[in-house]
Simulated assay, not measured.
Amino acid sequence: MDLLQLRYFQVVARYEHISRAAEELRVAQPSLSRAVARLEAELGAPLFDRRGRRIRLNQYGVTFLRHVERTLSELDDGRRALLDARDQVLGRVSVAAETLLTISQMLGGFRAAHPRAEVRLRQSTAEEMERQLRAREVDFCIASQPLTGPDLHVVELAREEVLLAVPCGHRLADRESVTIPEIAEEPFVTTRPGSWPRALLERLFASEGLTPVLSCEGDEPGATGDLISAGLGIGLVPAMSRRVGPRAPVAAVRLDAPDCHRVLTLVWNEDAYVSAAALKFREFVTGRPFMPHGLPDPPERQQA
């Protein structure tokens, strides 16, 4: 058993698909299949259930994967610690967020304060964040949805009301507030399943026994305002946020619905290696008020 076999197994277990794993690893599918088969033979137990071309991680594979991820994570932590000590620099900090606009100004401020720190940024769903923290692929997540798991530490950064954004001239543009039933037939601009705006939208409608009508689904919550301004529908936007660059003309209306807010949290794995850069980043983020950067003006109606 060698490290290459373990890393191959880890990626195959993640995808449960040989060809996708081979593509990420940049190896031939037959070579990858043989490596996994040799590992199973050495362990004396199958790690996957095979049905034709489909494979599924079985109970033995699930058990072994937990230990493999822990082992590889420890080795990666050791490598990072050695590089930090050798190079005598702050090291690297890796951050995941659901929308990059949320943390753009904050990251810029951190880089200005600590130019010797290397910053890596990923855009991830809440589900991906939990896996990335467990696998130590990121040091921190800035999340708008609860992340759960052993050894995860959570610090609340900001709590903000979520408003309904509508195009200027829309029938609701001059309203102070609206209820969910009043917008049940309106087309919504939102994000794909797994992101916080979509989760909140579906929860608000489900509480009224309704299902939202979707006109547009995207990957970047920060683009919602532009799409609403273009007349593609209405949508949910955080109240305290500000957009970068030219403002899109939209009107913001309060939603008469319980618990209509977003909570931003900083989450990290307490059991993972922490570089000097990561420590400085945590101090930087938690030691000052957090002002997200996105859309729109709080909370009065705006003309941008």
Results as ranks from 00 to 15, higher is better:
88 Q>M: 09
205 F>E: 08
209 G>Y: 08
135 A>R: 11
159 R>P: 04
192 R>Y: 12
6 L>A: 14
74 E>A: 15
72 L>A: 09
135 A>V: 05
126 A>N: 04
153 H>S: 12
35 A>Y: 03
158 A>L: 10
181 P>V: 15
35 A>G: 13
242 R>W: 08
300 E>S: 12
192 R>H: 11
81 A>H: 06
81 A>N: 10
168 C>H: 08
66 R>M: 11
148 T>M: 10
48 F>E: 07
43 L>T: 13
47 L>G: 06
58 N>V: 14
222 G>N: 05
279 L>E: 15
156 E>G: 06
81 A>V: 04
227 L>M: 12
56 R>H: 13
79 R>Y: 15
103 I>Q: 00
92 R>I: 07
72 L>G: 12
40 E>T: 11
153 H>C: 09
148 T>S: 15
155 V>D: 03
66 R>E: 15
269 N>I: 01
245 G>M: 10
47 L>E: 08
2 D>C: 11
205 F>R: 09
173 A>F: 05
193 P>Q: 05
289 P>R: 00
9 F>G: 04
84 D>A: 14
131 R>L: 12
62 V>G: 08
64 F>D: 07
80 R>F: 11
154 V>F: 05
173 A>Y: 03
285 V>W: 02
9 F>I: 06
113 A>R: 11
71 T>H: 08
26 R>C: 01
89 V>S: 09
36 V>Q: 00
7 R>D: 10
278 A>H: 02
174 D>H: 09
204 L>N: 01
247 R>Y: 11
268 W>T: 00
41 A>Q: 13
221 P>F: 11
292 P>K: 03
49 D>L: 07
113 A>M: 05
51 R>D: 11
62 V>H: 14
277 A>M: 10
98 E>Y: 03
230 A>F: 06
125 T>Q: 08
260 C>K: 01
112 A>Y: 11
153 H>W: 05
284 F>A: 03
54 R>H: 12
90 L>I: 05
89 V>G: 14
7 R>H: 06
239 A>H: 01
12 V>L: 02
6 L>E: 02
208 E>I: 01
181 P>H: 12
287 G>H: 05
151 D>G: 04
129 M>C: 10
8 Y>P: 01
204 L>T: 00
185 E>Y: 12
8 Y>V: 04
106 M>Q: 03
270 E>R: 14
199 A>M: 05
165 A>F: 02
283 E>V: 00
263 V>H: 00
22 A>I: 02
65 L>F: 10
129 M>Y: 05
129 M>E: 11
162 V>Q: 02
17 H>F: 09
174 D>F: 13
281 F>N: 00
100 L>M: 07
52 G>C: 15
131 R>F: 10
171 R>E: 15
157 L>T: 02
141 C>N: 01
